[in-house]
Simulated assay, not measured.
Amino acid sequence: MTQTTIDPADFRKVLGSYPTGVCVITAMGEEDRPAGMVVGTFTSVSLDPPLVGFFPDRKSTSWPLIEAAGHFCVNVLGSDQQDVCRAVGAKGDQKFVGVEYALSEHKLPIIANAIASIECRLYSVTEAGDHWFVMGEVLRLETTREEDPMLFHRGRYGGFAELM
Rank of each mutant, 00 (worst) to 15 (best):
E100D: 15
A112F: 07
R140L: 08
R154K: 13
A116F: 04
R58S: 06
S79E: 15
W132E: 11
I110N: 03
S60E: 09
T5L: 15
S44Y: 00
A116M: 02
I25P: 10
F152G: 01
I110P: 00
S46E: 05
P19W: 11
D7Y: 10
V38S: 03
V134E: 04
C73L: 07
A87F: 12
C23Y: 10
Y101Q: 09
S117N: 15
H153K: 02
I66Y: 02
V22P: 08
T20S: 14
V76R: 11
G16H: 10
P8M: 05
I110W: 06
D80F: 08
R154L: 04
M150Y: 12
P109T: 14
K13V: 01
E105M: 02
L65D: 04
T144A: 01
R58K: 15
V22N: 05
Q94I: 02
E137Y: 06
M28G: 00
V125E: 01
V88M: 03
F54E: 02
I115Q: 09
W63L: 04
C23G: 04
E137I: 12
G16Q: 08
L122M: 13
A90R: 14
L122C: 08
E147Q: 14
T20C: 07
G159H: 08
D10L: 15
F54P: 03
I110C: 08
F96G: 02
I111M: 06
D57S: 13
T61G: 05
A114D: 03
F96A: 02
Q3L: 13
G29E: 05
E137C: 04
F54R: 06
S117Y: 14
R121S: 14
Q81S: 03
G70M: 10
A116P: 02
I25T: 07
E30R: 11
P50W: 11
E30T: 08
F96E: 07
K59F: 04
E67S: 11
P109S: 10
G89R: 03
T20K: 10
M28N: 01
P56D: 07
S44D: 01
P64S: 09
L103A: 07
G129M: 09
V99C: 06
F160L: 15
S124R: 13
A87Q: 13
T126H: 13
G16S: 06
D57I: 05
E127N: 04
G155W: 12
G136A: 10
A114W: 06
V84R: 05
V138I: 12
P8H: 08
D10M: 14
E100L: 14
G70L: 10
K95P: 03
E100A: 15
D32R: 12
M150L: 15
F160C: 06
S17P: 00
L65G: 00
K91S: 15
S17Q: 13
